[in-house]
Design a protein around this nucleic acid. Structure first.
Length: 394
DNA sequence: CGTCCACAGGAATATAAGGTTC
DNA sequence: GAACCTTATATTCCTGTGGACG
């Protein structure tokens, strides 16, 4: 059930696998490898297929004496710049004793180190950059594939495999990067409910005892996954969560009820996770919107959130941020799915503006904030103020 | 049909906090 | 400790824009 579980048969990805294999063929021939770009929504098997194919490739390669293949996986989640990718790669290649820090060096120095490591390793290097869309500049994507051509590296052949959830990322690449990184492109379409069901059945056979898990439950999990953009990861997580719940209460079978509760729990977890990652000002903006929501003041435009936010900020002993920045925090809340937004336009009378409202159950958000308050400190007074507000209301 | 409102959101720049090297 | 590096967060300045109004 875990992320790293690798089924020995991948459902519904035959076509993609075939294309992928063809794209990898040069590696076996000992030629300069293709750069490959994979795209498709989250949880449609991009990473799973990559791991599957590359482990087989490594096996095949080991049978040839003169074929030296090195695989490097790097998930770029949380890495925002080429610089960070480069330092992480250097650290991948170096051993524990010679790790470098993630800031401080001039950019060129880091690249130098990287070339040196690659040269030392030699052979064919396939570097998998998972979730490359998280990096905001494409310098490394330009440098790596050309390291050999630019005589930075002589001993190693380098191939990049870029994986992205976001197709617009490809369009935003500079043309020179696009042409080299996207030599071979493979698109992974979303799973439909039927595919998801097969995937879940496959997991059932290895992870659950017979009779514990019935078809209706599987169908339900698959349906939820299909609803949210054909995401297999999500369906599996949901099934796993339902299983955990059933085990906790020592139930004999997993029921639809467990799935519903599991969904709720996972949702809550996501919210908590999102809120945890916000800055204090992000929290203050959220509190502002929350209280306005409680007073039926939503939907609300940003300038009407501002006074509330300003007073909260002062109460918390913080200088309130400038409106432009406050809007950034609002957008961030929208991206987390905590807040929903509608664009409005009243022409000459009111111009264009956006109206924000809370997209989540108030208690859920508040209890998630509750968890975070202790960690972050600072705004207990506001938290209790808001909590009191609820009491006054009810 | 052009004007013009009020905000959206891009871009350049600043600041502080983390690091390196010499 | 000075000089120089990246990064996250915030500020400042700005151009873009959809549609109601006249």
């Amino acid at each position: 059930m875990r992320e790293d579980y690798q089924p020995n048969e991948l459902v519904g990805r035959d076509e993609e696998i075939q294309k992928y294999q063809a794209a990898l063929q040069p590696v076996i021939n000992g030629e300069q490898p293709n750069n490959i770009f994979l795209y498709g929504k989250t949880g449609v098997g991009k990473t799973a297929v990559t791991r599957y194919l590359l482990s087989h490739l490594a096996e095949d390669a080991s049978q040839y004496e003169d074929l030296e293949l090195h695989l490097t996986f790097l998930n770029c989640d949380g890495l925002t710049s080429s610089y960070q990718i480069a330092t992480r790669l250097v650290n991948e290649f170096r051993d524990e004793t010679a790790q470098i820090s993630s800031t401080g060096y001039p950019r060129a120095t880091v690249y130098e180190m990287l070339w040196k490591e690659l040269d030392a390793i030699g052979g064919t290097n396939l570097i998998v950059l998972d979730e490359v869309d998280h990096v905001e500049d494409d310098s490394i994507l330009y440098q790596l594939p050309r390291a050999r051509a630019n005589n930075k590296v002589s001993g190693a052949k380098i191939g990049i495999i870029g994986i992205s959830n976001d197709f617009s990322f490809r369009d935003d690449l500079s043309p020179k990067v696009k042409s080299s990184l996207c030599e071979q492109e493979i698109h992974f379409p979303a799973y439909d409910a039927g595919d998801l069901q097969k995937i879940l059945e496959q997991r059932r056979d290895v992870a659950f005892r017979d009779g514990v898990l019935n078809d209706a439950v599987i169908r339900l999990c698959a349906a939820y996954g299909a609803k949210d953009a054909g995401d297999a990861r999500q369906s599996i997580d949901l099934l796993m969560k339902a299983g955990d719940l059933a085990r906790e209460e020592e139930a004999k079978t997993i029921t639809e009820n467990h799935v519903e509760t599991g969904r709720h729990d996972l949702e809550r977890g996501r919210i908590e996770e999102g809120i945890r990652g916000l800055t204090q000002h992000g929290h203050l903006v959220l509190y502002s919107l929350l209280t306005l929501h409680l007073q039926d003041g939503t939907p609300v435009r940003s300038r009407d959130i501002r006074p509330r936010y300003t007073s909260f900020a002062q109460r918390a002993g913080r200088d309130p941020l400038v409106p432009r920045r406050m809007r950034d925090h609002l957008s961030e809340l929208v991206m987390l799915g905590l807040v929903s937004v509608t664009e409005r336009n009243e022409g000459r009378r009111g111009g264009t503006y956006r109206e924000y409202s809370l997209a989540m159950n108030v208690e859920l958000v508040l209890s998630a904030l509750d968890e975070v308050v202790d960690e972050v400190g600072i705004h207990e007074s506001i938290h209790s103020l808001v909590t009191d507000d609820i009491f006054r209301d009810s």
